[in-house]
Design a protein around this nucleic acid. Structure first.
Length: 426
RNA sequence: GUGGCCGUAGCUCACCAGGUAGAGCACCGGAUUGUGACUCCGGAGGUAGCGGGUUCGAGACCCGUCGGCCACCCCA
């Protein structure tokens, strides 16, 4: 009988990591909260059409990476590959789009890709979306919010912000023609992937990793020269606001994004500490998406951060939390002692005298219980044996440092325990 | 989807001209019938990812397959 394993690319988050996950989630949530963003909890499964209509029919995500299946009634459903589409769908469906409309969500996303460092088939994002605001002050707000998140996590020195404007769809269309015209002249020198993209998604050639292709692009027309006046002005205003806020940024004129719905401002927070998948958070403006999904024309902008990548980065920077240990381990010998301990431990939990109280279970000799107390990492052992039960007392033993123990009346336990923990707290 | 490296105990790894598997750590018990850590003694744990082939004989060689890691692609 072979054991059943987790599905490829869908990893378990084990105790050694789950503490960091919680820290990460609560930190981000607290910052979003403090900026006035409201959480949305969304389904993992949506109608397939939602994604083909928003992300773009010819993107890799829609073409070959979605987990798509038929519901029992024949409707095509898809495990969400990203969060923006569902968030916008919900906002339209429930009439949430009043200005201001600041939303965030968190949870797993699914893409059928080959797993590698920083990339799983089930991965987790926290994202935020602002609907109804067209001016670049909100672009700046999102970035300033993120800068605060990195600061609170201790990641500031490890990430850099890259920003760009990809303009209106009209200006992008004109640029696209110019770019294709240029690259056509040296088509033979392009790498295989870029030749393919020339037909499907020429803008993506801009962020090709191929050095020879990048060299060719040096002579190519620049996206910035094709921007419409409004995009140009908004981008300038965004840069100014970031300067005022003290957020460092780098203009990457070749930054484009993979999803079709983006326009104007696009940005990425990248790190060089994680290998090939260095984008830790990315976002951009999507002024046409709401209308495209059946709502009334409404500007929008948002971002999503990759939780797995942030966790990797925390570990890379040695910021990961040590594994949790117990504060107190409760040892009892015999049924009468177990009975006596039970009530006392309840009181300790009620009063909050200790954070983590591990009560021995599963039997075993006194000695083996003491061993478990030691292995639990607890600083204090509370011991109930025959003598304690007879004397209405409990023994409090210090397991770290110089050690020592005392037997005291039950009435003094709460105070004595608090003191012992405070003293041994490092 | 493509490519490279890798798959021996829970973990880190060894053995190996191909002759039927070992260490350290971890775990469990005891030395101490009410006291952990250090020490000592003992124990449990592997059909060597799985399937096939070559061979008298394969964990070692070959093929396939599954899985892992990394990179391409794509993207958070």
């Amino acid at each position: 009988m072979s054991a059943i394993r987790a599905i490829r690319g869908m990893s378990d988050i084990l105790p050694a990591e789950s503490v960091d996950w919680r820290t990460l989630e609560t930190t981000v949530a607290a910052v979003l909260d403090s900026f006035g963003y409201d959480q949305l909890r969304l389904p993992l499964v949506e109608s397939t059409e939602l994604f083909s209509r928003s992300i773009g029919e010819v993107t890799d995500i829609v073409e070959k990476e979605m987990y798509t299946f038929d519901d029992r009634n024949g409707e095509s459903l898809t495990l969400r590959p990203e969060g923006t589409a569902g968030c916008v769908r919900a906002a339209i469906q429930h009439n949430l789009i009043t200005t201001p409309c600041r939303l965030w969500y968190a949870g797993p996303m699914f893409r059928y890709e080959r797993p590698q460092k920083g990339r799983q088939r089930q991965f987790h994002q926290i994202g935020a979306e602002v609907l109804g605001i067209a001016t670049p002050d909100i672009d700046a707000e999102l970035i300033i919010l993120l800068a605060r998140v990195w600061r609170e996590l201790g990641l500031t020195s490890a990430v850099t912000l890259e920003i760009n404007s990809i303009g209106s769809s009209d200006s992008r269309l004109r640029y696209r023609e110019a770019l294709v015209a240029y690259l056509d002249t040296c088509r033979g020198e392009l790498d295989e992937d870029s030749q393919r993209r020339l037909a499907s998604n020429p803008l993506r050639i801009l962020d090709s990793k191929n050095p020879q292709t990048q060299a060719l692009l040096d002579g190519a027309p620049a996206l910035a020269d094709f921007l419409d006046d409004e995009s140009r002005a908004d981008f300038q205003r965004l840069c100014d606001l970031l300067d005022v806020a003290g957020v460092a940024w780098r203009h990457n004129p070749r930054l484009v994004r993979g999803l079709d719905y983006y326009n104007k401002t696009v940005f990425e927070w990248v790190t060089d500490r994680l290998g090939a998948q260095g984008t830790v958070c990315a976002g951009g403006r999507y002024d046409g998406l709401v209308e495209q999904l059946g709502g009334r024309s409404t500007p929008g902008i948002g971002f999503a951060m990759g939780m797995e990548r942030l966790i990797l980065l925390l570990r890379e920077l040695n910021l990961a939390a040590p594994s949790r240990t117990a504060d107190v381990y409760v040892v009892t010998v015999g049924d009468a002692a177990q009975d006596a301990a039970l009530g006392c431990v309840q009181s300790l939990r009620d009063s909050g005298a200790a954070g983590r109280i591990e009560q021995h279970a599963g039997g075993g000799s006194f000695r083996s219980q003491m061993k478990k107390a030691d292995r639990s990492g607890a600083r204090v052992a509370l011991i109930w044996g025959e003598d304690e039960v007879a004397g209405n007392a409990v023994t409090l033993k210090l397991l770290r440092g110089e050690g020592g123990q005392q037997t005291l009346p039950l009435a003094q336990l709460d105070n004595a325990l608090r003191q012992a923990l405070a003293r041994t707290n490092d």
